[in-house]
């Protein structure tokens, strides 16, 4: 099994954002940075190898995702209040898409429950195997990081 790539993460993130939240994102051509507080969502998984996925989104993006998922206007107060839950659900779907795409559908896999926190930037450096930095049409950044445990010895 080859190591996962940023391209794989970009594909999964882009497709899930598009299909589940009607938000369009492209790989960032420049370095992305986050300012203020952001939502950082983490989901653990077990499969051939264990690990975790982390999704970082500005709170404005979370509200946009929630609004699109719920079919309400982004200025609706509910969009902001549901942003955290929306990001958690997006990462949940990303987790399922990633493990079935990377490990395949023939091996047992298990997702944990997503945990989403409001955190201040700059974000602490976390161990990661690879990452996908993307920008939405609005220019807002989103980041998906993969922390994959070492594989079994050959």
């Amino acid at each position: 099994m080859s190591e996962p790539t940023s391209e794989l993460l970009s594909n999964v993130l882009g497709e899930v954002l598009q299909d589940a939240a009607f938000v369009f994102a492209e790989p960032a051509e420049d370095e992305i940075t986050f300012e203020g507080e952001v939502l950082r969502s983490t989901i653990a998984f077990e499969s051939v190898r264990g690990g975790a996925l982390r999704l970082v989104t500005p709170t404005r993006v979370a509200a946009e995702i929630a609004a699109n998922m719920l079919g309400i206007d982004p200025s609706d107060p509910e969009a902001e209040s549901q942003g955290r839950a929306a990001v958690s659900e997006i990462l949940n779907v990303i987790g399922g898409a990633f493990i079935t795409r990377y490990f395949g559908t023939q091996v047992p896999s298990q997702l944990g429950l997503p945990v989403t926190d409001l955190v201040a930037t700059p974000l602490p450096v976390a161990r990661r195997t690879c990452a996908a930095a993307m920008r939405l049409e609005s220019g807002e950044p989103v980041l998906l990081e993969l922390d994959l445990e070492e594989g079994p010895a050959a």
Binding site: N92, Q106, S109, L111
Partner: peptide
Amino acid sequence: TPMSEERVERLLDTGARAYLAK
């Protein structure tokens, strides 16, 4: 969310009638 075929089959064996992926 998408899951392994083995897990889907186990759920259907347990009594679920269908599976719809998010």
